[in-house]
Design a protein around this nucleic acid. Structure first.
Length: 468
DNA sequence: TGAAATGTTGGGGCG
DNA sequence: ACGCCCCAACATTTC
């Protein structure tokens, strides 16, 4: 008689290159289960777009499992209780999963492992989300890396294993335990605000692989020169798929055509790896500065300005375009993320944590490790961060990376009729140009909420205060 | 994975 | 032909 194994899906919503699932499939009959337990992730429960994504991702995963003669069991409740309950119902003697690396989840999973063992249930976890485990990479002093370049040099020297193929067959149990209907989780919005999201994204493993193939065939070679252009389609848009584990970094590593110039893109995959490692070693960083000297920084809490930024009403077209793209699609081009984030932190002096929280709530690819590293990088408070005095000028960034104003025109139609010369700085346009374009500042489009020249000086002064 | 301020150079206009 | 000034273009330093 072969054994019965519970396979616990978490952030690994795929069948291919799934070490824990492959293990389970080899060892015996498999009951795949997903547990909705947002309270386990507090204070970082998934936002609305993330829940939307999760819904459709699980729908597609369940279908893939059905096609393999298996099924997906859905449950709700604290993970440990639910797993114990399932083990009791089914008689499963072993539970396996792929590891997550967020502090709250590590803590929970450690407890679960111990509790299961105590009950005589075997538990085993696998590495499915990373190229290399965080505890395996150390610098010459034996410390975790805090600088990206040596970290990435090290990663590029590793031999990354080939991805596993999906299990050829999944044997189910003699009788399946009960499952909850996915609609009962209420992950979809009650009002349909999701048109923009729907037009842009299709969750699921199949789609992830399709996008990887397409990116590999078309855009990856030009990535280095195209990735900074929000008006072009130069990036892979794989981030949400990576977050949910619909695709693994190993699949990307080996899935890019070997002839292509892939290094610049792979460097970004290694940045993701760096982010996960940093969060693992510095678990306090989602809320606190990594560099303690930033604890004294004189931030300014201003609800009105924060709102203006969130809604894309700052009066700086490139910032507003980005924030609106985020709101309608759950995604923002990375170059624009940097510009918008720099604007919040340096021009408005609003704490990076407020920006991080907004991104967390609105991004489809919201990922604690990447979000944390990104914001601390911009704020200057993180590992290998941008020096504080590196302050983006939203006008020159717009002119440099959206030279024809196409990106701005798409997302900020109020200023679309302005000529290129003024599209990134409507306040500087002569009256007659504004009139011709139908722009009335303060009416059809906001006056800029702050003068960047002034803001830049103020930011530098604020920084000088914590330096001494 | 900036940008402004400051410094240097070199060509051209001009007395 | 020469020195002087101006300033754009580029380089370096500073924040």
């Amino acid at each position: 008689m072969s054994s019965l194994i519970l396979y616990w899906f978490r952030r690994d919503l795929r069948l291919a290159d799934n070490p824990a699932l492959s293990f389970a499939a080899r060892e015996g009959s498999v009951i795949p289960v997903f547990i909705d337990s947002p309270e386990d992730e507090a204070p970082w429960q998934p936002g609305a777009v993330t829940r939307w994504w999760q819904h459709y991702s699980l729908v597609s995963l369940a279908e893939r499992l059905r096609n393999k003669g298996s099924s997906l069991v859905l449950r709700q409740g604290p993970a440990l209780e639910t797993l114990l309950q399932l083990a009791k119902e089914t008689g499963a003697q072993k539970i396996v999963w792929n590891r997550c690396y967020e502090p709250a989840l590590i803590q929970r999973d450690t407890l679960i492992k111990a509790a299961l063992k105590q009950k005589g249930i075997e538990a085993e976890s696998f590495c499915g989300d990373l190229l290399v485990e965080p505890w395996k990479l150390k610098n010459k002093q034996g410390d975790p890396y805090k600088v990206y370049t040596p970290f990435s040099n090290q990663v590029f020297q590793l031999t990354i294993e080939k991805p596993l193929s999906e299990p050829s067959k999944l044997t189910g149990p003699a009788s399946w335990p009960k499952t909850k209907p996915i609609d009962s989780f209420k992950w979809l919005p009650s009002l349909s605000w999701d048109d923009g999201i729907r037009a842009f994204w299709k969750p699921g493993e199949k789609e992830a692989m399709k996008r990887l193939k397409q990116f590999s065939a078309e855009a990856v070679s030009a990535y280095d020169s195209e990735r900074d252009r929000p008006d072009h389609q130069g990036t892979s848009c794989l981030s949400p798929y990576l977050h949910f584990g619909e695709i693994s970094p190993r699949q990307i590593w080996h899935g890019l055509s070997s002839g292509a110039k892939t290094r610049p893109y792979l460097r970004q995959i290694v940045w993701r790896e760096f982010a996960v490692h940093l969060l693992y070693h510095f678990p306090h960083t989602p809320l606190k500065n990594l560099r303690a000297d930033f604890d004294k920084f004189p931030w300014k809490k201003d609800e009105r300005e924060l709102k203006a930024w969130q809604k894309g009403q700052t009066g700086y077209p490139i910032v507003d375009a980005g924030m609106r793209e985020l709101w309608s699609t759950g995604w923002m081009h990375n170059r624009v993320r940097m510009v918008a984030a720099s604007f919040l932190v340096k021009d408005l002096l609003i704490p990076w944590q407020d920006g991080a929280r907004w991104f967390w709530d609105t991004l489809a690819d919201a990922d604690l490790a990447n979000n944390t590293m990104g914001w601390q990088w911009v704020a200057g408070s993180g590992a290998d961060a941008a020096p504080y005095f590196r302050i983006f000028n939203p006008v020159s960034q717009g002119e440099r990376f959206d030279p024809d104003g196409q990106y701005v025109r798409k997302w900020v139609p109020e200023v679309a009729a302005l000529p290129n010369k003024w599209i990134h700085q409507p306040w500087a346009a002569p009256q007659e140009e504004l009139k011709r374009a139908g722009v009335v500042l303060g009416k059809t489009y906001p006056e800029r909420i702050i003068d960047h020249e002034y803001a830049r000086r103020r930011a530098l002064e604020s920084y000088a205060k914590i330096k001494k």
